[in-house]
C-alpha cells in the first residue's frame, strides 16, 4: 500500500539540494564507476577532510547513492516497539500518531534547560541530506537517505555544562497513541544514551525526514536519532526529552538483556551477539549476505573515539 505523506517542511528536500547537485552526483557516480572504486573513494573523501582511508565514506554519503534501499522497505520494515513488536506493526499502528504540536524537554547539566518546540531546531533551509548505512543488531541492514541536522548543532545551542559527560534521549511514552506500550516488553519509556563526545561527532544526526519527505510516523517522527556507526537500536525515535548527565544512562535494551545489548552498541563484526554472528549482514533487497564492516564502514571517522577502550567488553 502506498501512503502519500504530505510534506510538512515548507520546502521539500529535493529543492533544498539544488537539482544540479543531484545531477552532478549522478554523473559523479557514473564517472566513479568507470574510473574505479578507489578513485571514487578518494573523490568522496576529498569532500570531507576527515574522511580519508577506511571505506572512504564521506559525511554526506554521496557514494552510497547507488545502493539506496527502496523507500517501501525503509518505511514499512521498522523496529519501533511502541507501535508493536512485529516489523510490519509500526506502519499501520502509527498511522494516526500525532506529531504536532511536539515539544522537547532539555534538562540536566545544561546552561539552557527549557522546553523547546521541534521548530526551534529545525530550520528547513538548513536541513542536510545524509545517506547512511543502517545496520540493525538483528543482522539486517539498509542504506537510507535521511534529512536532518547534526546533533552537535543542537548540543551547542543548549550548551551542556562542563560536568556533562553523557546525553540521554527519551522516547514519547503515550499508551493511548502507542499500543505497544501496553505490554511490558521493554522498560518504558524507551531510553537511549550516548557519550557526549559521540553525540558531538559530525556523523551523529538528528533526523526529521527521509527520502525527501517528512519523516513518517513509523520511522520515529517528528525527530529521531541516527548514529550510523552503531546498531539501529541506539537511534531513539519520537524524542521528547534530552537530558545531560555525568552518569552513563541506563538504556532500554541494555536493561532488558545486558548480555546481549551493551551501552556502546558499535557495529562490530568481531563481537557476536550471543544468539547470532555479527560478522555478516543481509542488506534488505539482497539475497546474499555481505560482510559487516567495522563501525559499519565509518571507522576512519569514529574509531578514534574509542582508542584504549576494550570493544569486546564494551560492546
Amino acid at each position: 500500500m502506498l501512503i502519500r505523506i504530505t510534506p510538512e517542511h515548507p520546502i521539500p528536500s529535493s529543492e533544498i539540494t539544488p537539482e544540479g547537485v543531484y545531477q552532478d552526483r549522478r554523473s559523479f557516480l557514473k564517472d566513479a564507476g568507470i574510473l574505479g572504486v578507489g578513485l571514487a573513494a578518494t573523490l568522496a573523501a576529498g569532500k570531507q577532510a576527515g574522511a580519508q582511508g577506511g571505506q572512504g565514506t564521506s559525511i554526506g554519503g554521496a557514494e552510497l547513492k547507488g545502493e539506496l534501499t527502496p523507500e517501501e522497505d525503509v518505511t514499512s520494515y521498522n523496529n519501533f516497539y511502541e507501535f508493536g513488536t512485529g516489523k510490519d506493526d509500526p506502519k499501520p499502528n502509527a498511522k494516526n500518531f500525532k506529531t504536532k504540536p511536539w515539544t522537547i524537554k532539555v534538562e540536566g547539566m545544561v546552561a539552557k534547560p527549557a522546553t523547546y518546540s521541534v521548530e526551534d531546531f529545525v530550520s528547513p533551509s538548513k536541513l542536510e541530506d545524509r545517506i547512511y548505512r543502517h545496520r540493525c543488531v538483528e543482522a539486517w541492514s539498509m542504506v537510507v537517505p535521511w534529512q536532518g541536522f547534526p546533533m552537535a548543532d543542537f548540543i551547542k545551542k543548549v550548551q551542556p555544562t562542563a560536568s556533562a559527560k553523557y546525553v540521554e534521549f527519551t522516547t514519547l511514552n503515550d499508551p493511548k497513541q502507542m499500543p505497544g506500550l501496553r505490554f511490558p516488553v521493554l522498560e518504558w519509556p524507551y531510553v537511549e544514551g550516548l557519550r557526549l563526545d559521540e553525540a558531538m561527532h559530525p556523523l551523529a544526526f538528528f533526523v526529521t525526514g527521509v527520502y525527501g519527505k517528512t519523516l513518517p510516523n513509523q520511522n520515529g517522527a517528528p525527530l529521531r536519532i541516527v548514529m550510523p556507526w552503531k546498531y539501529g537500536f541506539k537511534g531513539g525515535k519520537s524524542i521528547v526529552k534530552v537530558r545531560f548527565t555525568d552518569k552513563e544512562p541506563r538504556t532500554a535494551w541494555n536493561i532488558a538483556a545486558p548480555d546481549e545489548y551493551g551501552f556502546y552498541a558499535n557495529v562490530n563484526p568481531e563481537v557476536d551477539h550471543p544468539r547470532w554472528t555479527q560478522a555478516r549482514e543481509r542488506r534488505i533487497g539482497e539475497l546474499r549476505r555481505r560482510e559487516t564492516l567495522m563501525f559499519n564502514g565509518y571507522g576512519s571517522q569514529v574509531a578514534s573515539l574509542y582508542s584504549g577502550l576494550d570493544l569486546k567488553k564494551n560492546y
Binding site: E72, S76, Y77, W140, R282
Partner: peptide, 15 residues
C-alpha cells in the same frame, strides 16, 4: 519475491 519482485514475505523473505 525473489524473481518477480513481489513483497509477499516482506522485506526479509528468507527470515
Amino acid at each position: 519475491d525473489v524473481f518477480e519482485g513481489t513483497r509477499y514475505l516482506g522485506s526479509e523473505p528468507i527470515k
